[in-house]
Design a protein around this nucleic acid. Sequence first.
RNA 1: GCCAGGGUAGCUCAAUGGUGGAGCACCACAUUCAUAACGUGGCGGUUGUGGGUUCGAGCCCCACCCCUGGUACCA
Length: 482
Amino acid sequence: MAKFYITSAIPYVNAQPHIGHALEFVQADAIARYHQVLGDDVLYLCGSDENAMKNVQAAEKEGVPIQDFVNKNTKLFIALAERLNVHFGVFQQGSDAQHYAASQKLWTLCKANGDIYKKEYSGLYCVGCETFYTRDELNENGECFEHPGRKLEEVTEENYFFKLSAYQEKLTELIESDTIAIVPTYRKNEILAFLKRGLNDISISRSNERAKNWGVPVPDDSQQRMYVWFDALNIYQSGIGFGVNEDLYKKWWPADVQVIGKGIIRFHAVYWPAFLLSAKLALPKKLFVHEYITVNGQKMSKTLGNVIDPNMLIEKYGADSLRYFFLRYISPFADGDFSENTFVEKYNADLANGLGNLTARVAKLCETESFEQLGSKDRSSIHLMDVAQYDQAMRDYKFFDALNFVWTKIASLDKFIGEERPWEMAKKGDARLKSVLSHAVDQIQEIAVLLEPFMPDTAKRIEKQFAGPKVNSEKPLFPRIQ
RNA sequence: GCCAGGGUAGCUCAAUGGUGGAGCACCACAUUCAUAACGUGGCGGUUGUGGGUUCGAGCCCCACCCCUGGUACCA
């Protein structure tokens, strides 16, 4: 049994999860569940980046201790995943002791390799925000947007730096050769172009003062804390026991695929493998970069007030419906739009009229005719199906193609029933009735297995209903929405 | 500005240089086992704009317009 270790990005928990987080969770979960169906030993890890200054600032605003603040928000992310039927094998918080130990180990290894050194860093510091800004993050007057009218100070601080520049060639080679595969190709090209322009060393620490004593302490220097990306990326390792439980770590690392949004590709495709190379650790095999979701054609933003709470959608329409819409109609390879109108339209067309109606249709026919299915299919029968197209789609993360394949099966079964007219066979006592129903039940069982990665609850319900020998009619899976 | 991806039916997307397709929505017909569901047919496009190459361009070349992302020591 092959192991399969998948991660999704570590969100900042300075605010509630939105629909974009839900999308990424669902994509990663579908991949994880697909590998489960294939029989792999699967682990899906997610975690929370809790050491960022944004968390500290948000906590101060609410007047809550930082740890309480991140704990509260982290729970919201975990709760959302649960409601989405997304199964995290591990959820690693960035503020816990295991993560601290693991990150200090990573630091020590990089330092031993000679890649960490001290250097003076000076930048524009906003006293109001208590953070550094670069020129292009400021308004036309060179002031930050939060505190217009207040001049920024040129502050100099001694920090630790990582020799990212030393890894330019090696990274180019690894990415070009797909040793670290980046999907899709245009993202790979983007990173190669970035590498070509040359790498500078990066700051990986800040003073306790500036960090407000929050974050992972730098080993052997009580005055500095790690700067977020260095430790945040390491959540992928700390959650599986790096530096703490070596057997567990050896079992899972390296990641087979890391799922991220396009906005953080550089950290994952350049910084992260560089840290690992420095520490002489194995590299992730693949990076799957998805695009973003817009709402009614507009970018999500608090100012526009169009942030959609996925919890509301789940409550209203069910988790599997939302998972279905995300995976079939939001392409991972292009920005996709979410609107509740379209969602309801697809729900009715595909789930109520398609999948839901078909299962009700066949179940009722079986019930009325007291049909008994002999030799029920089990999960292993998926290997006997003609699903090459589906498999290829899943390997390419083309969830929409895989679902198209399933819905083609649904349509052809509907057509088959319409042509055979089993309800007439029953009246005439036609002996072919049994074989027609048997075929229909077989097909529905196959469809259920194919749906497991996408709609786990629904798949289970269908599998149970059609397990046989007797098949009974049940409540509609997806009641039509008027 | 520069780099990359995209612009095809009302919507979401397909189309090795060879008669521009599918699903949804809409309309009609047929049907009744099923959630007013299913099936059949129809409506629907100067492929962002203007040039060029070619026997032939959605696809290749040039120019321009629009959308998205990146342009780093920033989460």
